[in-house]
């Protein structure tokens, strides 16, 4: 008699299959750290890896236009380009993307630099606790989503505004046409009165 049944497996797999809405880029010169981060985040997010700052920029460039990058998590101490330097760059090119620094080196200077130059969302000290880290990431994603929502609403507002404007133009034209008809009909005093009202 079989212990496992295929139907159960399918059912379970369909349950576990979550829709991953967000993409996170992780940057660390240490392969092991990348593995660890990937497995912490992989369950809930799409994860892209980069082994250093330059690679990270390259990865971002190659990304399809329609794919959004919700967050970049980077190590601070890396050869050639530090996490803060990378973030300083990204804060100009993609300001909405959330930036989190992970570092084993806690000196005041790098914290201040990461806040001021890299405009980071959070500073995480290694070694961290999985649960805490996931919380931070979740919060950051929430913030990102709020930002996105704000952006969407803003553009919606814009669209509505331009639609309004458009309808105004149409209405104006209709009015003008109506006036022309009125003038032509010779009701001058009457039309003058209407004009006054309009003014």
């Amino acid at each position: 008699m079989a212990i496992f049944k295929k139907e159960k497996l399918e059912k379970l797999q369909s349950q576990n299959r979550q829709e991953k809405k967000h993409t996170i880029l992780i940057v660390d010169d240490e392969e092991n750290n990348l593995n660890v981060l990937a497995s912490v985040l992989g369950m809930s997010y799409n994860v892209i890896r980069a082994i250093n700052g330059a690679k990270a920029l390259a990865v971002i460039n190659e990304m399809p236009k329609d794919q959004e990058l919700s967050m970049v998590i980077s190590d601070q101490r890396m050869p050639e380009m530090t996490g803060v330097e990378l973030f300083e760059h990204l804060s100009h090119t993609m300001p909405d993307t959330m930036r989190i620094i992970v570092t084993g080196y806690t000196d005041v200077k790098s914290i201040i630099a990461s806040i001021n130059q890299g405009q980071i969302y959070q500073f995480v000290v290694k070694p961290f606790e999985r649960v805490e880290f996931l919380m931070i990431v979740k919060q950051a994603i929430k913030t990102y989503e709020l930002k996105q929502e704000r952006n969407n609403m803003r553009s919606q507002l814009k669209n509505q505004l331009s639609e309004c404007k458009q309808s105004h133009v149409v209405k104006d034209k209709k009015l003008e046409a109506a006036f022309a008809v009125l003038e032509a009909s010779g009701l001058q005093s009457e039309s003058q009165r209407i004009q006054k009202i309009q003014e």
Binding site: N33, V40, V102, T103, G104, K126, P127, F128
Partner: peptide, 18 residues
């Protein structure tokens, strides 16, 4: 040393949790 130790400690620590 702190940084050097923190890195491996981190991935060992987090890996264990993972």
């Amino acid at each position: 040393v702190a940084h050097e130790i923190n890195n491996p400690t981190n991935f060992a620590h987090v890996s264990a949790q993972n």
